[in-house]
């Protein structure tokens, strides 16, 4: 009886092993035929996955040799503050320029450089009270300060312009000198979406690294 039970069990295990071989053949065939498509599908799924459980603002550091940041801030995170003492402006500075970001403070265009990298930094905020309502009153020589956890950067305004929103040439991305282009909608006190932009151009005049 015991032997019969044992042989029954062994026979069943053998059948299970055959089943496992079948599974391996099917998986191997699928991988061989559709491997690339599967990898693409997996990467697409992972692209739309946002793990918010471990999101922390990592220590952002500037590499003094390459003049590039190490550990760039996550898109949508606050990485500094923008201050204009002459206009009583002190706003949080976020990486990114989507509408939800701009509701929280100053946005930093992802197509531009970061403070300290020696290129054009493009920032923007709404022209409403509590944001850059008074930006069009900024004077030549006024200072704009960006404070981050890796340093403090002071810019001095040297020019201002009012342009139509379609004049994208008004902002030039370059990496020969550090320029901060800060803009907002213009004019203020209009109803609807203003079709012009007020831009304050400023040059880096001081930097202090942490």
């Amino acid at each position: 009886m015991h032997r019969k039970n044992q042989s029954t069990l062994i026979a069943t295990i053998i059948n299970l092993i055959v089943a496992i071989i079948f599974v391996l053949i099917i998986l191997g065939t699928i991988y061989a035929v559709f491997g690339k498509s599967i990898s693409l599908a997996i990467s697409l799924v992972n692209k739309v996955s946002i793990d918010t459980s471990n999101v922390v603002l990592e220590d952002v550091k500037l590499n003094s040799v390459t003049k590039r940041l190490e550990n760039y801030p996550e898109y949508g995170t606050k990485y500094g503050n923008l201050k204009i003492d002459s206009l009583n402006v002190d706003l949080p500075l976020y990486y990114g320029d989507t509408l939800p970001i701009l509701r929280n403070g100053v946005g930093h265009s992802s197509g531009s450089y970061f403070p300290g990298e020696g290129g054009t930094i493009v920032c923007m905020a709404h022209n409403t009270k509590g944001y850059l309502y008074d930006l069009s009153k900024i004077e030549i020589g006024a200072q704009i300060i960006i404070e981050t956890n890796y340093g403090k950067f002071t810019y001095e305004v040297y020019d201002t312009k009012i342009v139509h929103k379609t004049e994208v040439d008004a902002i030039e991305i370059q990496n020969e000198e550090e320029i901060l282009d800060l803009y907002t909608c213009y004019p203020v006190n209009t109803f609807g979406h203003a079709t012009q932009r007020f831009i304050a151009y400023s040059k880096l005049v001081d930097k202090q690294f942490n």
């Binding site: 509408l99 939800p100 701009l102 509701r103 709404h126 022209n127 409403t128 909608c185 203020v188 006190n189 209009t190 109803f191 609807g192 979406h193 203003a194």
Partner: peptide, 12 residues
């Protein structure tokens, strides 16, 4: 919420 994103820049 999406409407608010546009309204904040409208002066309203």
């Amino acid at each position: 919420d999406q409407f608010k994103n546009y309204t904040i820049q409208s002066g309203l």
